[in-house]
Structures are given as structure tokens and as C-alpha cells.
């Protein structure tokens, strides 16, 4: 479960990106965070994996209190979260297989476990035939699939996706959404920041709208209203 109470984030330059956000997300939910550029949705996403520390308020992810936790506990919080970005952020000198395996190696999983799990997740995202390809040899959609595979390989309870379809055409975006839907069906919470109106309207889930750092609407089975 994710819980935010009166979360305020003020940057050192004086800009207040989040102005008192209250939000609760249950385990297994699928939540869109929508809003215009600069509305604060990316900041909100970053506070969830503690890339940014909040200025005031309460923020809890599963058993972690992100305000009180010590810096050395942050890696353990992040092992419970998978993060996917618009620009994939794969390691260019590693193959698809190695990129996914890397996520398990750095948290010191056993080699046998790594091998079977990496094959399993790459198969799940439909890249079984391309495990030896380097990112430069893959299309944008395929790279995003590798990024998703990497994000879920450690079986996180939450998948955070910041504009995962931002660089992709509509068909490829739909393919990515199908994968994310499948992940969500396995009781993984999905929090996805997006601009993509058709995705929000086609794959209907809870929609949280952020405007100027405020949470302006929270709709169960909502739709993306363009004026937001």
C-alpha cells in the first residue's frame, strides 16, 4: 500500500512542485497520474522511489516510511519497486539478456536464479528470440520491453512508469500497455504517469489528475480530460 498525506515538495530554487498531496493506493491497483507538463507528476513519481525527498508531509510505501528512513535503507525500498522511463535507460554495451540480468546481479542473486528468471521475464515481454541483441539493434518498443523486463525481474510489488509510451507510436504503445496490464493482473501495483489520452481512455483505470502541484481529481475508472 502507498500512502501520501499532505505531501509538499519545494525545490531549493523556490519552486513548489507538490502542494499538499493526499493519496492512497492499494496493493494491486492500476493508477494513472495525468497532468500537463510541469504540473508536478514527475516529481510525485520521483518521491515514490525516493529520488526526491519531500519537504513536509508523510509518504509511506509498503512498510517503508520514506520521510524517516535512513539513506542506507533506500536500496531495499527500491528492490520493492520497478521503475520504467520514457527513454528506456538501458546499458548500451550490454545485451537485452545482460541488461535484465544486471538488475539481479547487483543485488547479489544466485547465478542459477538469475538465468531462469531473466529468460522467464524476457519471454513474458515477448523478446525470447532477441535476448542476445544489443539495445541499438532493437526498436524503441523492444527497448521499452527490455526496460520493463528489467524493472520486474526482481518481482517488485510496485511498477512505476514515467511516460513509458512517450516515445512510441500508437500500435507499439498498445503492445507495451498489454504487457503492463498483464503485470498488473499478477497483483503488482502500477503507477503510470502519462500524457497519452487514448491509452488512458482505452485501458480504463483510476485516474489522478495533478495541476500546479495540487491533486485536482481522483476518479475510479476515469478518463483523461484534455483540459487537465
Amino acid at each position: 500500500m502507498i500512502e501520501l498525506k499532505n505531501v509538499v515538495k519545494e525545490y531549493p530554487n523556490g519552486i513548489t512542485a507538490l502542494k499538499g498531496i493526499d493519496l492512497t493506493i492499494e496493493q494491486g491497483e492500476f493508477v494513472y497520474i495525468v497532468g500537463a507538463s510541469g504540473s508536478g507528476k514527475s516529481t510525485l513519481i520521483k518521491t515514490l522511489y525516493r529520488e526526491e525527498k519531500i519537504t513536509s508531509g508523510i509518504i509511506k510505501v509498503n512498510e517503508y516510511d520514506l520521510v524517516r528512513m535512513k539513506d542506507r535503507q533506500v536500496p531495499y525500498l527500491r528492490r520493492e519497486l520497478g521503475v520504467v522511463f520514457q527513454d528506456y535507460r538501458l546499458l548500451p554495451r550490454l545485451t537485452a539478456y545482460e541488461n535484465v540480468a544486471y538488475a539481479m546481479e547487483v543485488i547479489e542473486k544466485r547465478p542459477e536464479e538469475i538465468k531462469s528468471r531473466v529468460i522467464e521475464v524476457l519471454e513474458m515481454v515477448g523478446l525470447k528470440d532477441k535476448i542476445r541483441r544489443y539495445p541499438s539493434e532493437l526498436s524503441g518498443g523492444e527497448q521499452q520491453r527490455v526496460a520493463i523486463a528489467r524493472a520486474i525481474t526482481n518481482k517488485p510489488s510496485v511498477l512505476i512508469a514515467d511516460e513509458p509510451t512517450g516515445n512510441l507510436d500508437p500500435d507499439t504503445s498498445n503492445e507495451i500497455m498489454e504487457i503492463i496490464e498483464r503485470i498488473n493482473q499478477q497483483n503488482t501495483t502500477v503507477i503510470m504517469a502519462t500524457h497519452n489520452q487514448s491509452i488512458v481512455n482505452n485501458y480504463v483505470h483510476r485516474v489522478i489528475t495533478i495541476k500546479h502541484g495540487h491533486l485536482v481529481s481522483d476518479q475510479e475508472k476515469g478518463a483523461y480530460r484534455y483540459e487537465a
Binding site: P75, L77, R78, R79, R89, A103, V106, I107, R150, N154
Partner: peptide, 10 residues
């Protein structure tokens, strides 16, 4: 960046 995101210790 990748190590940090997947929870490698400092």
C-alpha cells in the same frame, strides 16, 4: 543510475 534504481547498496 541503473544500479541505484534496482536497489544496489551504496
Amino acid at each position: 543510475e541503473a544500479m541505484r534504481l534496482v536497489g544496489a547498496t551504496s
